Measured scan of single mutants.
Amino acid sequence: TEEFVRLWREAVRHNQTLHWNGTDFIPGDEWAEEFARREEEKL
């Protein structure tokens, strides 16, 4: 979602874990980066 992408970019900028829907998205984590890339492509 647009909100997820916005929060993810913020988390990456501050190198912080994003807690989203009970899942931890960690900047630099391969799975999280791939998920975020797919979400961005949907926008």
Rank of each mutant, 00 (worst) to 15 (best):
K42L: 09
H19S: 11
F4L: 01
R6Y: 10
N21M: 15
V12G: 01
W8E: 02
E2H: 13
E40A: 12
G28Y: 02
P27K: 02
R38A: 12
K42P: 01
D29I: 07
F25E: 00
R37M: 09
E2M: 14
W31Q: 08
D24N: 11
R13M: 14
N15A: 09
E2P: 10
W20G: 00
W31Y: 08
F35E: 03
E2F: 10
W8V: 01
W31A: 09
A11V: 02
W31T: 07
W31D: 06
A32K: 01
E33K: 06
D24Q: 11
I26T: 15
E34P: 00
Q16K: 15
R37T: 06
W8K: 00
N15H: 09
H19Y: 06
N15L: 07
N15I: 03
E10Q: 08
E30V: 14
W8R: 00
E40P: 04
E30S: 14
T17R: 06
V5W: 07
F25P: 01
A11Q: 01
F35I: 07
E2G: 10
E30L: 14
T17H: 07
L7I: 04
R13E: 14
D29H: 08
D29K: 03
G28D: 02
V12L: 09
E3S: 08
E2L: 14
R38L: 11
W8D: 03
A32H: 02
H14M: 15
I26N: 11
F35R: 04
A36C: 08
E33Q: 10
P27N: 01
I26F: 09
E41G: 09
T23K: 15
A32P: 02
H14K: 15
R38T: 10
W20Y: 12
W8I: 00
E34N: 13
A11P: 01
D24K: 09
Q16T: 14
T1E: 08
A36Y: 07
A11L: 02
F35M: 08
E33G: 03
V12Y: 04
F35D: 00
G28R: 02
H14S: 13
D29L: 05
A32W: 03
R38W: 06
I26A: 13
A11M: 02
E34K: 09
T1M: 14
E3K: 05
E41C: 09
V5P: 00
E34R: 09
L18A: 03
P27W: 02
D29M: 08
Q16V: 14
R6V: 08
E10Y: 08
F35S: 01
P27D: 01
A36H: 02
F25L: 10
E33D: 07
F4N: 00
F35C: 08
D29R: 03
R6W: 10
H14L: 15
E3I: 10
G22K: 05
I26P: 05
E39K: 07
R9P: 03
H19D: 03
R37G: 04
E30P: 15
I26V: 13
V12S: 07
E33V: 07
K42M: 08
R6Q: 09
E33W: 04
W20N: 00
E30H: 13
F35Y: 15
N21E: 12
A11F: 04
E39M: 15
E34W: 10
L18Q: 00
H19C: 14
V5H: 04
V5K: 02
L7K: 09
N21K: 14
Q16F: 12
E41A: 14
G28A: 03
G22Y: 05
N15M: 08
R38F: 08
E40G: 07
R13I: 13
V12D: 01
R9K: 14
W31M: 09
V12N: 05
E41V: 11
E33M: 09
N21G: 11
G22S: 07
R13F: 13
E33N: 06
L7W: 04
R9E: 13
L7S: 06
V12F: 04
G28K: 03
R37P: 01
A36N: 02
A36F: 12
E10K: 06
R37L: 09
R9D: 10
N21W: 11
T23P: 00
R38C: 09
L43K: 04
N15C: 09
A32N: 02
D24R: 06
E33L: 07
L18T: 01
V5A: 04
T17S: 08
W20H: 04
D24M: 11
T1G: 14
G22L: 04
E33I: 10
P27Q: 03
A36P: 01
V12W: 05
R13Y: 12
A32T: 03
R6S: 08
T23R: 15
E40Q: 12
E34V: 06
E39T: 15
A11T: 03
G22P: 00
A36M: 08
A36V: 11
E34F: 05
E30Q: 13
K42H: 06
N15D: 08
A11Y: 05
R9A: 13
E40R: 06
A11S: 07
H19N: 11
W8Q: 00
L7F: 05
R6N: 09
W31H: 07
N21V: 04
D29T: 11
G22E: 06
N15K: 11
E30W: 13
D29W: 04
F25R: 00
H14D: 11
E30D: 13
T17D: 02
T1N: 12
R13P: 00
W31F: 10
E33F: 03
R9F: 12
F4C: 04
I26K: 14
I26H: 13
E40I: 15
W8P: 01
A32R: 02
E39D: 02
D24T: 12
Q16W: 12
E10P: 00
L7P: 02
W31L: 06
D29S: 10
R37Y: 06
E39H: 10
E34T: 10
E10S: 03
Q16P: 01
H14W: 12
R38G: 09
T1D: 11
E3P: 01
K42E: 04
E30Y: 12
F25T: 01
W31N: 06
E40S: 09
E2N: 09
T23L: 15
T1H: 10
Q16I: 14
E41S: 13
E39R: 05
E39S: 12
